[in-house]
Design a protein around this nucleic acid. Structure first.
Length: 490
RNA sequence: GGCGCUAUCGUCUAGGGGUUAGGACGUGAGAUUCUCAAUCUUAAAACCCGGGUUCGAUUCCCGGUAGCGCUACCA
């Protein structure tokens, strides 16, 4: 589709939120699916709350996810445009000055009965008096003069929610300009959408009812409104909208990155929240999603991000939605070893290990199926990179139905075998199994003491591959230490 | 309070006037295995309630209920 233009318009008041990220993704998918243009616009008109750090964090989050965009704007650099538009609307008589002081806080005066529509007297102020008071320097907000008593119905067809309508008489005279002269979100957003020729506005459902106001602004501007499509919201298990205050770091994209999510897995997860390919598939690449994506596939009910609330029930894989974790494990297994190895590297560095690329590449296949988050690789494979094993309980060396003496015999036999067996998988396999047979042991009781001696723990990757990577000398040294530890057991 | 939106297993969802209401995650059981994983098999688990329309509604309509959103000179 030519001239298809969408935009993602975050206000930089904090880190990149998972809900915002999903909104970006859906816009991006729609643009790329239809060969349109993706615009990134920073809606930074709220000078009090906007920070440059937040802008950077949004960029960082989007880049980590692997996305790009075609054009970039900042609303704060377009103020003149917004003010001109406000002036034009005022000149047309479609807006009026409201000299009522801004009411602070959350007083309940308006919510008691019915809806507030406008401040008394202000809408009816004569042009002369309005001009006079403005000239005297009295501060005012500029409000939209919403059609009254015309029995007018505002309508639009939403790309997701279908035909929508609302009586203009039920829309309040919302502000266009604040008393400090700054445009409100509604004005700035619509003016920019019009100026940037945005053809489709895809945003959160929290804007669904705001759209009627926006229709009025586009009309006042004398332009055709774009198409609208609203996305169901992402909510917490308690049903509330995701918020940093209430739900903590699980709503920040960086939390997923730092915990070891693969961007493609996280994107996959987010896309499945409120959208379905309708083909019973859930493990999808970005390209597949892009090809399959349509607004018709978006559903209308809010989706719960099923993270674990607070620290009340700490889960093995953190607070994350189990499906996100599972998808991440799937994507990890789908990655070529070289690529996975590269992805793992920073996590080892951060943990203070400095593995050589070759060593890491050798270890990666051994842990690939044992981790669900990249970060887990460190604890799953640390014993490959330390010269000295962390202290472990010598009792672990003793197999289920065995005793210290049996463990000692196993280890001594292993030491002899390992000293003279070629250090490759098949040779070790054969030699160790034969040794087990000669001791009258099954594989289990034979391998556990060796595994614990070599890895320092019971649960580890397969023994032979592990020993090959570790090398003969290190294995022998650790087995000797283990024998000593058993002796100390008494 | 007003207005709007929504409602299928615990969660994400498919489906749709007549179905054994499907899939996935998670959970239980089993198989496999040198441990842990992975893998395979398998089990339990849902159409919010009430009225219509209809031969027949989970599906269509209306009402209720619940949840969410908006109701700011936040976005």
């Amino acid at each position: 589709m030519k001239n298809l233009r969408v935009r993602f318009a975050p206000s930089p008041t904090g880190y990149l939120h998972v809900g915002s990220a999903r909104t970006f993704i859906f816009n991006w998918l729609y643009a790329r699916h239809n060969h349109g243009t993706m615009v990134l616009r920073l809606d930074d008109t709220d000078v009090e709350r906007n920070t440059e750090a937040s802008v950077q964090s949004i960029f960082a989050g989007l880049h980590w996810l692997g996305f790009d965009w075609d054009e970039e704007y900042r609303q704060s650099e377009r103020l003149a445009l917004h003010r001109d538009a406000a002036e034009t609307i005022f000149a047309k008589g479609l807006a009026y000055r409201d000299f009522t002081p801004a009411h602070s806080g959350d007083d309940e005066t308006s919510s008691a009965q019915g809806a507030w529509l406008s401040n008394p007297g202000m809408r009816e102020l004569s042009r002369e008096e309005s001009d006079r008071r403005a000239a005297e320097g009295e501060p005012f907000a500029l409000r939209c003069r919403v059609p009254r008593g015309e029995d007018r119905t505002l309508r639009f067809v939403d790309g997701v929610y279908g035909a929508q309508s609302k009586l203009a008489d039920e829309v309040e005279d919302f502000a266009l300009l604040r008393s400090d002269g700054m445009p409100t979100y509604h004005l700035a957003s619509c003016v920019d959408d019009a100026d940037l020729r945005i053809s489709h506005i895809i945003r959160g459902q929290d804007h669904l009812t705001n759209t009627f106001k926006h229709l009025l602004i586009f009309e006042a501007l004398g332009v055709d409104p774009p198409q609208f499509a609203h996305l169901p919201l992402l909510v917490a298990p308690d049903g509330a909208k995701l918020s940093k205050r209430k739900h903590g770091p699980v709503v920040s994209v960086t939390t997923y990155r730092d915990a070891g999510f693969l961007p493609q897995a996280f994107v996959n997860f987010l896309c499945l929240l409120g959208w379905s390919p309708k083909n019973d598939r859930d493990f999808l690449s970005l390209n597949e999603i892009r090809d399959l994506f349509t607004l018709e596939g978006v559903n209308r009910a809010n989706a719960v991000v099923n993270f674990t609330e607070s620290a009340s029930s700490p889960s093995e894989f953190g607070p994350f939605d189990p499906k996100a974790v599972w998808l991440n494990a799937e994507h990890i297994r789908a990655l070529p070893i070289e690529e996975l190895s590269r992805q793992l590297e920073p996590f080892f560095e951060e943990a203070g290990f400095h593995p050589s690329p070759e060593k890491l590449l050798a270890v990666t296949p051994l842990i690939r199926e044992r981790i669900k988050l990249l970060r887990e690789a460190v604890s799953a494979a640390d014993f490959f990179f330390v010269s000295e094993l962390a202290p472990y309980d010598p009792a672990e060396l003793i197999p289920q139905k065995g005793d210290a003496e049996m463990a000692r015999r196993v280890l001594q036999t292993a030491e002899q075998v390992l000293a003279k067996t070629p250090f490759d998988h098949d040779s070790l396999d054969k030699a160790l199994r034969e040794a087990a047979a000669s001791l009258g042991l099954k594989a289990g009781p034979m391998f556990q003491p060796i595994r614990v001696a070599v890895c320092g723990r019971k649960n580890a990757p397969p023994l032979f591959e592990t020993m090959v990577v570790l090398g003969r000398e290190l294995c022998l040294a650790r087995i000797r230490q283990a024998i000593a530890r058993i002796a100390s057991l008494g």
